[in-house]
């Protein structure tokens, strides 16, 4: 296990998710990377039952699988401890139904091809929520190094070579670790990054749905806006979102709306 970075790649302007993925594949192959089969990372969400009664927000438990470690699975408590278990941990979760309820329709997965280039492993995946593609994830792993701070510049240079200038910052998983040493035996750091990414994709999804809802409510007259919003939700492109938000701001009729939907620049 080396140093891993998982990031979300925006869908290219005027292209579908699949087309953008194809472009990435082509760029990697031009670079000299060799395809080595497929991969899949999935995540199930469980509510902790009974937490609602105390008035606190519900606590989530995420159970994740990764084809890189096919015999084990990872259970992460939101902001809390995690455990690595055998693959049939899911069966146990069924037995624990009274404590943890499976949030149906919350299943997220990222599926795609695995490439190797020298000592790098690259996984380009399509993030799917309730059987529709919502975004693209790219995982880059530099296998021979174990200290993220050491090889970060090197990884950045590599990612620039096929992702262009829009490369991520050092993942927060690493910045929070005091000694910065990667845990070699399990892939928790990778999975935490995937979880963050899935959360981000889900939030974007929720936000766009909320925009449509609010627009429907307040702008019943302006059918066009609703149409734009629907387009945006269907295509899930950041660009469409941007146009939408700037359009809303320009109309200046709905101050309340702009405060309700934060500008996409500072996506939380």
């Amino acid at each position: 296990m080396g140093v891993t970075c998982v990031c979300q790649v925006p869908v290219a302007e005027g292209k579908s998710v699949q087309q953008t993925v194809d472009i990435l594949h082509r760029k990697l192959e031009q670079l000299g990377a060799v395809k080595q089969g497929n991969f899949c990372v999935d995540c199930e969400t469980y509510h902790a039952a009974g937490s609602n009664t105390s008035g606190q927000p519900p606590k989530f438990l995420y159970v994740m699988h990764n084809t890189e470690t096919p015999l084990s699975c990872l259970a992460l408590f939101e902001g809390g401890p995690y455990l690595t278990a055998d693959g049939n941990f899911d069966v146990l979760m069924v037995k624990l139904k009274s404590h943890f309820q499976n949030a149906k329709g919350h299943k997220v997965e990222s599926r795609g091809s695995r490439y190797q280039y020298c000592d790098f492993l690259i996984k380009v995946g399509t993030v799917t929520m309730s059987s529709s593609a919502r975004g693209i994830s790219v995982e880059v792993e530099y296998c021979p190094c174990v200290v993220p701070g050491d090889c970060w510049n090197l990884m950045k240079e590599f990612m620039q070579s096929f992702l262009g200038p829009s490369i991520p910052e050092l993942p927060s998983v690493y910045t929070t670790k005091p000694e910065g040493l990667y845990v070699p035996v399990d892939s928790t750091d990778t999975m935490t990054q995937y979880l963050e990414l899935f959360g981000k994709v889900r939030k974007q999804q929720l936000r766009s749905e909320r925009v449509v809802f609010v627009l429907r409510k307040h702008l019943t007259g302006t059918v066009a806006w609703v149409w734009v919003a629907q387009q945006c939700v269907q295509k899930r492109t950041e660009v469409a979102m941007l146009t939408l938000f700037s359009g809303i701001k320009a109309s200046s009729r709905l101050f309340s709306l702009t405060s309700l939907c934060p500008a996409p620049g500072h996506a939380s």
Binding site: G32, C118, Y142, N153, L154, E157, F158, S161
Partner: peptide
């Protein structure tokens, strides 16, 4: 000790053919 941290003294890059 700085195998992954030092860029090449000639071309100034970190990677060439995927190698530092």
């Amino acid at each position: 000790i700085k195998l992954f941290q030092t860029p090449c003294q000639r071309c100034g890059k970190y990677l060439q053919d995927g190698l530092p």
